[in-house]
Design a protein around this nucleic acid. Sequence first.
DNA 1: GAGTGGTCTAGACCACGAG
DNA 2: TCGTGGTCTAGACCACTCA
Lengths: 245, 245
Amino acid sequence: MIRAVPSRRDTIADDLRHQISTGNFQAGERLPSEAELATHYAVSTPTLRSALALLQGEGLVEKIHGRGNFVRRPYRKITYTGGGGEAPTWATPSAPLHMTARTTNLEAYGLLAALLDVPPRSPLRLTEVLYIAHEGKSPHSLARIYVPHDLAPADSPVRGEIAARAADLRPPLAEVQERLSARLPTQEEATVLRIAASLAVLSLTRVATDVTGRVVEAALLVLPGDRADALFTTRLTTEERSSKE
Amino acid sequence: MIRAVPSRRDTIADDLRHQISTGNFQAGERLPSEAELATHYAVSTPTLRSALALLQGEGLVEKIHGRGNFVRRPYRKITYTGGGGEAPTWATPSAPLHMTARTTNLEAYGLLAALLDVPPRSPLRLTEVLYIAHEGKSPHSLARIYVPHDLAPADSPVRGEIAARAADLRPPLAEVQERLSARLPTQEEATVLRIAASLAVLSLTRVATDVTGRVVEAALLVLPGDRADALFTTRLTTEERSSKE
DNA sequence: GAGTGGTCTAGACCACGAG
DNA sequence: TCGTGGTCTAGACCACTCA
């Protein structure tokens, strides 16, 4: 099942990976131009570019049009902590992420209406908050949070962290559903996050319901696969254990 | 930020997508050969192939070397249900998945040792069960489950479902940790699952601990992003709600 | 304007699958 | 053997970035 003759693309990608991992190419450094690399490896530019595309998909290399190919800094892996209730949505190992937020009011339609469990015919007024997390200068992840307009705080300033969303003046949460899938980013997401279109993202949809059964928040999160993962911890109560059969 | 002039690749991909969605190309059907398509769209073969690669990454098209490009059947989306305790790991909407399993004994090393929380120097004897779920004839997803050898059932036959793993003769579970990330498949995974190397997979690592704190199971699951997602439901108890500040 | 990556061409030759 | 996809070439021309 394994190719007897590895393709030139793979050979080149392996070599570049090795050179990056050994520090021959430093993090943040610009690689030689594609033309130079193609000459060095004695391949044509399309072949070399396909090798770079592999590294790009792994998040090792970032291409910037008109400037060059850059070795990405090793990531601080950020862990999204699921389970809704407890405090920190983001477990940040060292440096905190900087968030920018933009608030918009709109009406529920299509997917949003389904998420918020409102009839699509009688649209609900929503407050959308678009968060872009930054790690240093480069964007890290993306979150769109929708809250029914009457539950949104009257003032909607930029807030320091995603966890500090309007969770205070509402009935307590009763249930949080989080659905995760892996996919490639949309073109828009790839542009905003400055990631390759071939880098997988973790797409997370979170719906929070309060004790009255009303959906009080829906969130769409996009976490690039090379710098974020999600962790769910379930502690089983004795009742659950015994009901397991 | 949006390209004013869409590339030929995108134009062709859009057209093929449209033809597939309108049933002009039926599910399971073979597309015209790449040479024919290239002629039809008046582009060169590499350009046409890059358009097909997009559809492949979306799971709409399956390439089979020497045979052609085939329209994939629409997927039954399978939902992996997290949270460990409750019964069904897989929520299967209609047709159940068929599982094949292979049991091996080996020793914990590297990643496995870390997962099972044993010192890497004194390797632990493990039983590995490799599951491949099939939907009809084509592979669906992949699971590798590791259990300490002394906890594995003496007989290790092929079992009907993944949930029926050795969970009966052990101390009850106390905690389940599930870590999810999005990435591209390894070459091996792509081969086994017959998916494109560019189709994102959901990678799930599950570690179950019993009441004594011992790791009794580690599982590595690979769920292709086009046919599976994961769902976590958290019901908040009153204590958790009140401790939220 | 110089240098970079982005897209595309019009072929060539190789590897795989089925008859 | 024949038709398919897989890989690769050696350019061309366009678009973006920066000085």
